[in-house]
């Protein structure tokens, strides 16, 4: 069913275990060791940060909504579970994922406009000819087996807002945590409602005041590392007198819901490590490594 996650192709075909994902990536490395040593690339999460920033650039002038960008990010992830990045032109993949996601999320953009906009940003990597993007669209759809409907945690978040009487600040923070989870493998590893619950916990436990997201996530990482122990303890000990009532209410709700708490904790840890590695992010570095790879392998042709 299109709107039912449990029967969706996302749950049936696009949910991986960590081990499976690692195996897939290792098999890419095995198959083309030369390329891997010749063209080292930054950590996948740093690349994801880079891709997401490029998508935001692309989307800005076309005033694309966040959900279409999120869908595009999921498409990119899915595509790279089937293709070694070193055999592709990532700029073309990013642009095509954007173009396709806009159509799927009902905010379509004309192919010529998308190509023109992409050439504004990366003239040396995107050909003026729209047929390249059209061809890449075929590759993307084919690798995804036409399974293009993506379920996002945003929906669960808005459904839970009244139930958990979340403040607008908390919702805003949870929303940006959800935005950030697209920078990790989490969308390939956990169902959207688990992500939403994780985002809500993070938002309620760590007040929005502590955070200015995107780029300067370090304070949050620290806060989460230290404070995270509290919530993890609270989750384990339902009779604990420790946490404030606000958090106790959330813990109570969690205990009654059938949400997989262990999965929620794993997601939180994944996010903490994202914020830690984010400190090493350098746009220039990503750009250089990708550029060198694309140019010397003629992947832009």
């Amino acid at each position: 069913m299109a709107a039912n996650y449990w029967a969706s192709t996302q749950r049936r075909h696009w949910l991986f275990t960590k081990e499976r994902l690692a195996d897939i990536r290792e098999s890419f490395r095995e198959r083309d060791k030369a390329a891997h040593s010749q063209f080292p690339l930054p950590d996948q999460r740093l690349l994801n940060i880079y891709f997401s920033q490029q998508l935001i650039k692309l989307g800005k002038r076309m005033s694309t909504r966040q959900q279409a960008l999120a869908t595009a990010q999921v498409y990119i992830k899915r595509f790279y579970t089937k293709n070694e990045i070193r055999h592709t032109n990532p700029y073309l993949v990013v642009t095509t994922a954007f173009y396709l996601a806009c159509k799927m999320e009902e905010c379509p953009q004309h192919i010529r406009f998308v190509v023109a906009e992409a050439r504004n940003f990366w003239p040396e990597f995107i050909a003026p000819d729209v047929s390249k993007l059209g061809e890449c669209e075929f590759a993307l759809i084919s690798e995804m087996n036409s399974q293009l409907i993506v379920h996002h945690p945003y929906r669960t978040l808005s459904e839970l807002q009244p139930e958990l009487s979340l403040t607008s600040d908390e919702v805003a923070l949870a929303w940006s945590v959800i935005n950030d989870h697209y920078l990790t493998d989490l969308p390939l590893l956990y169902p959207p409602h688990v992500i939403a619950v994780m985002a809500i916990i993070v938002a309620v436990v760590f007040k929005p005041s502590q955070t200015s997201f995107h780029g300067t996530a370090a304070p949050l990482a620290g806060a989460m590392r230290d404070g995270g122990m509290n919530i993890l303890a609270a989750l384990g000990d339902k009779n604990g007198a420790g946490p404030p009532p606000r958090i106790q209410k959330l813990v109570g709700w969690l205990a009654e819901s059938e949400v997989d708490i262990r999965a929620v904790i794993e997601c939180t840890q994944e996010l903490v490590s994202l914020y830690e590695i984010w400190e090493n992010y350098s746009e220039k570095h990503c750009k250089e490594l990708l550029g060198r790879m694309v140019k010397s392998k003629n992947l832009d042709k």
Partner: peptide, 14 residues
């Protein structure tokens, strides 16, 4: 030429 798929085709496929 590849010219981009129509939204109607994309919807029906998905």
């Amino acid at each position: 030429q590849y010219t981009g798929l129509s939204q109607s085709a994309i919807r029906e496929m998905a």
